[in-house]
Design a protein around this nucleic acid. Structure first.
Length: 510
RNA sequence: CGGGGCGUGGCGCAACCUGGUAGCGCGCCUGCUUUGGGAGCAGGAAGUCGGAGGUUCAAAUCCUCUCGCCCCGACCA
């Protein structure tokens, strides 16, 4: 192998994305101080810098949900085992990953330890999702068609005992919102399913700056118990797909099992039509993998934990007074500005001057870094670095100008991130029509240590579950969705060659 | 749960093969120096070597068991 003299650029994160993507992901989280592993297997501690992102997601999305008439409520963490047993497919889907509470007391074991005691008559399952317990409530709340629709959401934690966990992407416990609605007609429920998917897509694209593909899941990928599952899929920088949100049309399955029955205008007893939909802390994992670079986290301004960090620079004590006063004043002024309904959030870092201080904030992904020293103050200007640009591309900006344009700068960054992600997604989305080309696309050159490869393949699928599972077995590639905007186009199934009338999205997935 | 890899100060790693009681870089603390693009020098704090057992005069090192993490697979938001 030939090595050129080009000295490798020093990156804040090792390894880089191309060297080892999964390890890079871990390091970005560690060095941004967003979250850390906990003593509990598969569970994470979300630290303030990471939790702030979740709070921002929650605040924005909560408003968007409420704007469609949804109201928040809260249901129990514990679900009686008998509730889960009511919907056959639903149980089957979740049975393998349930945490079960069987006792309600601890007793001394005589050796300084404790043992569970007080066995429960009926075990309680820590909710993996709440269709059954919310369905039980709905059945009591509904008697007439006049009681419908019911539009409920809850922000909660859920537990799914996963075999393999990955911080933010798949943890045993995670935070989410789950919406549950009940309607008089099939049409209205289907419409709600679409509406919520649209809201998720809008939110993820406009706030998280992640372009998504809206689509339908195949039967094999459907939510257990759903008639139809819709999803938004985003492409990560390793070209894998991430399901960023789902919206389910549950038909009458859950109203049958929970007894959500209403009397219609024509005096008939009917089962309600229900939906459920959710997004989770997984979005934060997606955010990281969609935008971050080899210097660490990159946060879209609209959702960032904070917008700007002020880095005062002074050497002599007499400078300190001037610089700190200028900094405090600037901070107070910036905090008066509203950026997309949220005050500009300012951090001030008074630690010792040095490159390392600035690099910490680069690794934390804060959109703007503002250096303030005596020379800047003399010119009434600031030295500003943007996270979406190289770390050397800092510019001097007049203070007034900065205050006047900070919203525009942040909006421009937000737009840049989206455009960049969209271009990446487009560059790595290809039409594939032959089986050979399809397999070549998804097989890495180096099997032992796979390089970043693949992407979204838009290919024809005959609709058979055999072909779907064959491809999954061969390549660990799955049908991410049948896009809502897919057009009729005659072609051949990329697996079996039989006629098919539309393309679906194939990809490796998280 | 199967296959592979790895557990050593906060982070990243070395020492392990060939046993002799732990070292490096970054970070952290103190002091001095320094011209605002990842500062220099000096001093300092911090480690049950993942855990348990065994072999041995002696174990991070060898053996057995165990726990956890990461990657690949099956499952999933």
């Amino acid at each position: 192998m030939i090595y050129f003299m080009t000295k490798k650029t020093k990156t804040a994160i090792t390894p880089t994305r191309s060297e080892n993507y999964p390890e890079w992901y871990q390091q970005v989280i560690k060095s941004s101080d967003m979250a850390e592993k906990s003593p509990v297997r598969g569970c994470m501690v979300i630290k303030p810098w990471g939790y702030a992102i979740w709070e921002n997601i929650r605040n924005v999305l909560d408003g968007m949900l409420k704007a469609t008439g949804v109201k928040n409520a809260y249901f129990p963490l514990f679900i009686p085992l008998s509730f889960l047993e009511k919907e056959a497919e639903h149980v089957e889907g979740f049975a393998k990953e349930c945490a079960v509470v069987t006792h309600h007391r601890l007793e001394k074991n005589g050796e300084g330890g404790l043992i569970p005691a007080g066995k429960l008559n009926e075990p309680l399952v820590v909710r993996p999702t709440s269709e059954t317990i919310i369905g039980d409530s709905f059945s009591k709340w509904v008697s007439s068609y006049r009681d419908l629709p019911i539009l409920i959401n809850q922000w909660a934690n859920v537990v799914r005992w996963e075999m393999r966990t990955r911080i933010f992407l798949r943890t045993s416990e995670f935070l989410w919102q789950e919406g549950h609605t009940a309607h008089t007609t099939r049409e209205e429920a289907v419409e709600r399913t679409h509406l919520m998917l649209d809201i998720y897509a809008e939110f993820v694209e406009k706030y998280l700056a992640m372009p998504v593909v809206k689509g339908y899941k195949t039967p094999a990928e459907r939510f257990p118990g759903a008639v139809d599952t819709m999803c938004i899929e985003a492409m990560m920088q390793d070209k894998k797909a991430l399901q960023a949100g789902t919206s389910h049309f549950l038909g009458q399955n859950f109203s049958r099992s929970s007894g959500i029955i209403f009397q219609s205008a024509s005096e008939q007893e009917e089962f309600a039509w229900t939906t459920s939909w959710g997004v989770s802390t997984r979005l934060i994992g997606g955010l990281i993998m969609a935008h971050s670079d080899d210097d660490g986290l990159v946060l879209p301004p609209k959702i960032a934990s904070a917008h700007v960090v002020l880095l005062p620079i002074f050497r002599k004590p007499e400078e300190k007074t001037i610089v700190m006063e200028f900094t405090e004043n600037l901070s107070n002024e910036l905090k008066q500005i509203f950026y997309h309904n949220r005050r500009i959030e300012v951090e001030i870092d008074t630690r010792e001057i040095g490159g390392a201080r600035g690099w910490d904030w680069i690794k934390k992904g804060i959109p703007l870094r503002v250096e303030i020293g005596p020379r800047d103050i003399a010119q009434d200007s600031l030295f500003v670095g943007r996270r979406d640009q190289g770390h050397r591309e800092k510019k001097s900006i007049k203070r007034e100008e900065f205050i006047k344009t900070i919203k525009d700068i942040l909006d421009e960054m937000q737009a840049n991130l989206f455009e960049r992600a969209l271009a990446f997604q487009k560059d790595n989305t290809v039409l594939i029509d032959t089986k050979k080309e399809f397999y070549d696309f998804f097989i890495p050159e180096n099997i032992d240590k796979p390089e970043i490869h693949g992407g979204f393949a838009l290919s024809h699928w005959c609709g058979s579950e055999n072909c779907e599972s064959q491809i999954k077995t061969d390549l660990s590639v799955t049908i991410r969705s049948i896009p809502v905007n897919t057009k009729k186009e005659n072609g051949k199934c990329v697996c079996c060659g039989k006629p098919a009338d539309k393309r679906v999205v194939f990809a490796k997935a998280y």
